[in-house]
Design a protein around this nucleic acid. Structure first.
Lengths: 195, 195, 195, 195
DNA sequence: AATGAATGAGCATTCATTCAT
DNA sequence: CATGAATGAATGCTCATTCAT
């Protein structure tokens, strides 16, 4: 394998996202990705161990950036409410800004096999930690409940964001995902119950 | 095709669940399913149009029952709090009681192709409706917020239950899912914010 | 195997002709033939050893009748010219009168396998003999050349009739096959050469 | 698909002819053809869209050459009698020289399905045209009858040659096909009738 | 005699990966 | 570094035939 992270490395990853988004996971053959990246089939194997490695690298690269950008914005504000608000905003914002990526992460890559899904899980751990840190901060500040399992709170937050985003993609992104930032924030904070 | 819904029909579906749970979606060959169901390969095609039809039928049958059982219990109680509580309990209970089914619905069937996922979506609609009815009832009773989109509330409830269940399966079901009924209920009702 | 030549025996053969003519040789499944004949699949195996036996029986029965009818008419006339004329007429007449049979014998049954084609050959032998008798009669009468191989003359006669009939079927029987009796007779008698 | 008409392209076609001739149309599996051509199964699909495409290509290539060679020789001579004589000679000559091809074209490929047979028909059209041109030439020269349908004359010529060749193959090529050139020529020219 | 549910052998095709150039 | 022709393992489905009823 050669100088990773070179020009072609990114060309191949971007080609893969485009091909998967446009053709679906199961029709994203290596040949198609190579053609889109304007390299030969064999070249892909100079940069990636195999197809799975390409997909994992793709997911890692994009998700790391995704989480970094969320973290950046979350760090800029100081109250836990503002932090959660930023988290939701940035989560939705990034998906709304990159429809190809949204399709790939919310829909297509979920059709991958077991091993890959485990890998996805481990990559998402960064995001989970970010959310859990936020929750811990909220508890320390006395703003969040201190008698509920943090992991569970994280699952509610992530599960809600993920389900909301997936539904939006499945509905062909026909409505404005960002319009949901406010009500989702309110729901997560206050729950279903009217006080 | 022959008298559907006979003894073999169910034997094949149950065999499929077992084989998929144990081998993963992509290694669940028709031959393996047939052997597990103790029928010939060709017999499967007397009861199902093709492999996809088998998988869709499997999902429909099991999910319909799943939703029916949830609904049954939800209908038995009268306050919206009790109803939501029952919903969470039954959702987790049924997955906890049938680990094979849990693996298949939470993990394996999600790696299916686009068409199939659409079919999954349409089957889940029943469940979505059930949850939305519950929310509407809560709003009418004055117990739930009336200023948040019902679909969004549903996405929070379903997203939270689904993410919680998937995490549990991914962690090899090593902890007690039912122990989460109470805190999940509390979280969904009250949100993250400490009053 | 049971009382051959019973009512169902013929029902099955007629059903086979219809199904083959309408669906083509390769789509003529035993099940379809059974349904058309209004018997169970298994019943066919009470009357025929296997599918090939059914097809061979079909061809034998129909070709035997075909040849018999030709012979009947040929026997009624006395000069070799009249006999040949009758042969051509009856050959075309019978195909024109039974389009299903024409499709089956000229097109569909030719897609059968080696063994079957041999069987076809042996069944056609009757017809070949009839034609060769006619030729021999012509030679004895001094009307036909006596210096050409009889088998060759027969191949010219049969080849011409067969090619003419096949072309007619391939052209969807859009023109009148019987209109060709006269010119074909003339061609076979006089050859291409203008005297 | 890769550079067609290369070395392997012809190796595959020749392998197909051999395998079909030796095993029969229905036992000519792709794997067998690949092994005979000393390539991998998948390689066949680099040169042909699918198995049917291979068979059609085979027939087209061989028949086109067949017709070309006939035409070449027919063009070298000037009288219509000589032309017809050459046609018969070349038709028989080429089959006699390549027994595998003879089996494949006279017997095996006729068991193919409807679509394929249509393709065969369209490829044979070239040959039909060649024969019809010859007939037209004979008529213009005043040598052939001008009161018989040209298509019918062609059907007599082709039908006779084809039936003669098929019979020869069915008799396991036990006699000399070329010995029939003279009498077939004479028969076609003069017909059955002794003058 | 008749039924029809059950059987299971057989095969074209795809596509990730390699390696000689 | 890059190419792309060649590889070959892996599998869903059909349908003639059987046999318990």
């Amino acid at each position: 394998m050669v100088k990773k992270y070179g020009e072609k490395y990114h060309a191949i990853i971007d080609a893969a996202i485009k091909v998967i988004a446009e053709n679906g996971y199961h029709h994203a053959q290596v040949t198609k990705i190579a053609r889109e990246a304007q390299v030969a089939d064999g070249t892909i194997y100079l940069y990636f161990k195999n197809k799975e490695d390409l997909l994992i690298s793709l997911f890692r690269l994009k998700m790391t950036r995704f989480v970094e950008k969320v973290k950046q914005k979350v760090d800029l504000v100081h109250s836990v409410e503002e932090k959660l608000h930023q988290l939701i905003y940035m989560h939705f914002k990034q998906l709304a800004m990159d429809p190809h990526l949204a399709i790939v992460t919310q829909i297509e890559l979920r059709q991958s096999n077991r091993n890959f899904r485990k890998e996805i899980g481990s990559t998402l751990k960064l995001y989970h930690l970010l959310i859990e840190d936020l929750i811990r901060f909220g508890i320390e500040e006395g703003k969040f409940h201190d008698d509920v399992d943090i992991r569970l709170m994280r699952q509610m937050i992530f599960g809600t964001l993920d389900e909301t985003a997936t539904s939006w993609v499945m509905k062909d992104m026909k409505y404005d995902l960002l319009a949901l930032v406010e009500p989702v924030f309110s729901l997560l904070m206050n729950g279903l119950k009217r006080k």
